[in-house]
Design a protein around this nucleic acid. Sequence first.
RNA 1: CCCGGGGUGGAGCAGUGGUAGCUCGCCAGGCUCAUAACCUGGAGGUCGCAGGUUCAAAUCCUGCCCCCGGAACCA
Length: 523
Amino acid sequence: MTARPKFFLTTAIDYPNARPHIGHAFEKIGADVQARYRRMAGFDVYFLIGNDENTIKVAKRAAELGQDTKAYCDDMASQFQEVWAALDISHDDFIQTSESRHHEGCRRFIQRVFDNGFIYKGTYEGLYCEGCEAFKTDKDLVDGQCPTHRRAPVRRSEPGYYFAFSKFQDRLLAHYAAHPEFIQPQSRHNEVVNFVQSGLQDTLISRHGEQWGIRIPFDEEFTIYVWFDALLNYMTAIGFGHDETQWARWWPADVHFIGKDITRFHCALWPAMLMAAELPLPHKVFGHGFVQRRDDRTGELVKESKTLGNVTEPMDLITKFSSEGFRFFFMRECPFPGDGEFSWQRFAEVYNSDLANNLGNLFSRVATLLLKNYGGELPAIDAAAAVEPPEGPDPASLAASVASHVETCDYHLALEAIWRQNLDPANRIADRYEPWKLVKSDKAKAGSVLRHMVEALRRAAIYLKPFLPRAAQRIYGSFDFETSWESVRYTDAGTSLPPDRPIRLTVAVDEKGKIPPLFPRID
RNA sequence: CCCGGGGUGGAGCAGUGGUAGCUCGCCAGGCUCAUAACCUGGAGGUCGCAGGUUCAAAUCCUGCCCCCGGAACCA
């Protein structure tokens, strides 16, 4: 058996101090499309997601609820995974950073960096709130006071371990220059270069006196500061520190999908950590944009927050409509590299026009025409009766262009092309030749028109396999195409069906002899 | 103050040098196979402002105005 190329992709791990929101979902969906696309393209894919549990906030939240921290984390992890399952996220692994595989790997890693001389003991000095029993940054304070305890923090210093981040400034800049594709999109690349050029400070990577978290192997009184631990999930999940064969198989990551806000950690701190440990760097970091919510009534952008209780639950969207509608909206409407907006009204608009009225309706009309006029079987094509294919680019170049958009994560452009250059032309050719009339005078010619329409559906199904896995399969599986659903590739969308082979409709009809709609309209 | 993103017909967005495009909405037709869907045509934009480069700019350069986000545990 020949070895297939591997593709290892990750998303950021999420803080489980609240249930997942649409922003988390946006990232998972975008990564999932990539994972599914790569599997179609023949890669051996490992898709990792997970939760980031070694934070003080999580321990505090658990304490508030009177729960054991680990039990709380496990419960949240299952709540997150419930949402991801409902969204058809096809991850291969879900890591919790409280797992022992992660702890072990982290300890190995930090020891290694320590042995290489990039960690040293120093003194941390900062503003400490005695009420919170925690250090505060300037932005935590309101009028110089801790907002929860209404008192000014005091200067306090304590010993801690520092990572020699500053030593990597030149090497990082050299790496960005040598690998311009490392940070995507381009705007994020510029941001990071700028940040690193402005100078790096050594960072504190330890915490003192915490019960929850990972102990530092060379000084057990300390725990590992969350970022230094969190980033390592990408390696510990695939075996770093406990399964070297697996680790060697998958590392380095092909792409880390992250929110644009944590670009610096992934593009500066993370590669520096790997350099310090003398390990290979990931190939690419993709910082996607954010989804904001627009209020349907006021038309204003909404700042979602737990305390205001106005967080949009992904589950609401899924149960109210469908995971497919959810996936489609975010991928079509919110450019992955940039920002997007969500509103219930806009959601219904996009769903109705693209999914119900266009794709879904095209499927209905084709299926019904086939059923009513051909008994569900479109005969082999008669060359003399063949009509010109719908306007638009030739199938092979459209397939190449859609694939290229998917590879660069310009999902909105990929979907736009599928609709404007593949589906719209199919609806137009129907109107132009009116096969429902034509079938009475020239059945062969009408059949040729229908073939073009079936082709459009077949191609759409292939293109949409990573985006709408269920609907795409349902469309594809409604016909007896030769290539199996499991083995289709994007390049198949660039080909045409063999004209000498009949096309049989295999879809089931309901009691009334009708085909149930693919995407029922939202009213 | 600094950094990043953005300002395109009523709304939301594509579009990085060569007749301004898409979705929704609106108006008028057509069609009836289809999920009251689909197709055609129309109204509606001096592409934030001011300069500049060019035979040619929404698209490149300069300055300014406005909006959003960020500045190290927030996707």
